[in-house]
Simulated assay, not measured.
Amino acid sequence: MNLHERRRDGAAREPLLFVEDLKVHFRVPLGDYPWSPKGTLRAVDGVSFEVRRGETVGLVGESGCGKSTLARALVGLVPMTSGTVRWRGEAVASGHRRHPTMRREVQMIFQDPLASLDPRMTIEQIVAEPLVTHQPGVGRAEVRRRVTTMLERVGLSEHHLRRYPHEFSGGQCQRVGIARALIDAPKLVICDEPVSALDVSIQAQIVNLLRDLQRELSLSYLFVAHDLAVVKAISHRVIVMYLGRVMELGMRDDLYGAPQHPYTKVLLQAALTPDPARARARRPLLLAGEMPSPLNPPTGCVFRTRCPIAIAACAHDLPQPVVRHGSATRVACIRAGLVAFGD
């Protein structure tokens, strides 16, 4: 292999997005008055992962685990407190300021289809806005042509150009949101629970649309969701978060087939199954208590207060996601795989 071939091979293997020890903390008042003392809310507390070209990385966890905050921090909607983020090998500035190329090449699809669209703008204006912002030299006729083409690609038509968001259903509004995210040819799309507000039948249509667009446009996705069935249907790798930290990260089939972390096992046991016989036969795994406050997380392993296999060492040692048991799965648990739980 010559030097040029080695460089090309290295570029192909380099992840699009590299995140290391990312933290997003907020200073919030601890009382009801302006002079109340403030505490630190650790929404995201040291998350590391990468997204490769052409793959979908699923991000799952309970409500309040920090997955949406992480997604918003990556697109600059909330400031990063610390950590390293590299986009296509280049360092990205912290806070609200992002690398100029990343602003264009990383787009987001939001959870609420209607609320994410400006009600005062027509569908044509909404979809065209990123294109006009990043490519101001493109003529009006070319902008309309591209917008029409993109709308048709997501299942809408030219007849929808002059309509307003309130004239569409939730599924149609989400298609408009997808068209807006893709109009300027991004490389990574961050999907923040894009189907959670939709009916089940519409969810399947949107997931199939996203998969088709990924193949056609060579897209990468960071897919945030709490529905494990949806994540399994679309993801190549999966990240499991709890209280701002990564509990487990691995290939989809490995994680769903042989989960290592007790929290992952609980999530999978709680997921609905379409097979009534299997649903009646399995033993439910229930967690005691509520998720602790990110204002006052437990010492050591943040999951230890609800973990059925926790030991004294869990209160002192903060486990980092490391490769265990000869697989590519990274698990943040000192007892992962050592104790049978929920089998």
Rank of each mutant, 00 (worst) to 15 (best):
V207R: 00
P298R: 12
R245A: 09
D317I: 14
A271P: 01
R283D: 10
H226M: 06
L287T: 03
Y263H: 03
R245S: 08
H316P: 00
D227N: 15
R283Q: 12
V240N: 06
Q260L: 15
L295W: 11
N208P: 06
Y221Q: 04
D254S: 03
P308T: 02
G300R: 04
P308G: 02
L219E: 07
Y242T: 03
P321M: 06
N296G: 06
C301P: 06
P319V: 05
R278D: 13
Y263W: 06
Q205E: 14
T273H: 13
G300D: 11
A258E: 15
C307M: 06
A233L: 13
A281G: 14
L222Y: 08
I239C: 03
P259G: 09
E216F: 11
R304M: 01
Q269H: 12
I206D: 00
D212K: 13
V323L: 12
F223Q: 01
L243W: 05
M291E: 14
R215P: 05
D227Q: 07
C307V: 04
L267T: 12
V323I: 09
A288N: 09
I239P: 01
R304A: 11
I311F: 12
P294C: 13
P319T: 06
H236A: 01
A328N: 15
L286I: 12
D254E: 15
A225M: 11
Q214L: 04
L267Y: 08
N296R: 15
L255F: 04
R245Y: 00
H325W: 11
D275E: 12
Q320M: 10
A225V: 08
A312H: 12
V238Y: 00
M291K: 11
V266P: 00
R282T: 06
V224S: 05
A233P: 00
V240W: 07
V323A: 14
A229G: 12
T299V: 05
A271K: 02
L209F: 06
A315N: 09
P321Q: 06
P292D: 14
G300E: 11
S220V: 03
I309G: 06
P259H: 10
P298E: 10
S235D: 05
V266K: 09
G257K: 12
A225E: 01
L287K: 12
L285S: 07
C301L: 10
R330M: 14
L222W: 09
L210V: 05
L217C: 11
D212W: 06
I239A: 01
L255E: 08
P259M: 07
V230H: 01
T273M: 12
P294Q: 14
A313W: 04
A225Y: 11
S327A: 08
D317Y: 10
T264Q: 10
L213G: 02
E216H: 12
Q205N: 07
